[in-house]
């Protein structure tokens, strides 16, 4: 066994933290905690980016890290918290599948993601063994979070967490996307958040609830 450099080990550990937080989000019922976990995930992502930037010496990555910190750790969580307070949705109702069941499905997803990523991480010279797999897993788990929740609020958090996974995957496999793309994505996320915020108020005004079942009931009669 060749000794893995310490920085890489640290990166691995941070990747594991990301996955851990994804699972924590999956197991969480409280929307407030969900947002906090999302902020924490952003922080871990920021740390991982900084670490990689320091190791490779790419200035682009420093900017990405700063962007992550500003957007995902500070701005978005604050926005979300404010939304939660204004809308009064502190709890998600019972998820569609019970929590252990969801976690079990999540486990299978992780196995799938790791298996999928094995050839990719063999190709990618930069990434550590599990980083790509973890990135894929985070994306898929975020999907699962979105699927199993009933409240629009938690789905948005899931959506944002998916973006975290994408970002981490890109970063660990190719040392980050081109700066333009990254800036564009960041802007997109921010705008999407604002639009969704407005959208929430509209939904609530229409249906007196943020429960998506209300929306689902509005479909064409067959």
């Amino acid at each position: 066994m060749t000794p893995v450099p310490f920085v890489m080990q640290l990166l691995n550990a941070l990747a594991a933290m990301l996955l851990l937080l994804s699972f924590a989000m999956l197991a969480q019922r409280r929307v407030v905690t969900l947002v906090d976990l999302f902020a924490l995930q952003g922080a871990v992502l920021c740390a991982a980016t900084l670490l990689l930037a320091w190791r490779t010496g790419e200035t682009n990555l420093y900017i990405s890290a700063a962007l992550t910190l500003a957007l995902k750790v500070i701005v978005l969580p604050r926005l979300l918290h404010r939304l939660i307070r204004r809308l009064g949705v502190y709890w998600d109702t019972d998820p569609l599948l019970n929590i252990p069941g969801t976690m079990l499905v999540g486990l299978m997803i992780v196995v799938f993601a790791f298996g999928l990523a094995q050839p990719i991480s063999a190709l990618a010279s930069t990434a550590t063994r599990s980083a790509v797999g973890i990135a894929v897993a985070v994306i898929l788990l975020a999907f699962l979070t979105m699927i199993t929740r009933r409240k629009a609020m938690s789905q948005v958090v899931g959506f944002l967490s998916m973006e975290n996974g994408l970002f981490f995957g890109a970063m660990s496999a190719t040392y980050g996307m081109p700066m333009v793309v990254e800036l564009g994505v960041a802007l997109d996320v921010l705008v999407a958040m604002l639009v969704l915020g407005v959208f929430f108020f509209q939904i609530r005004e229409q249906f007196d609830s943020l429960d998506l079942e209300e929306l689902e009931a509005r479909k064409e009669e067959r």
Binding site: L19, L20, I99
Partner: peptide, 18 residues
Amino acid sequence: APEFLATAFLFAVLGLLV
């Protein structure tokens, strides 16, 4: 409580996976 513990169990299993 079983939910809490099932989460613990699955975390441990996840450790095995990672």
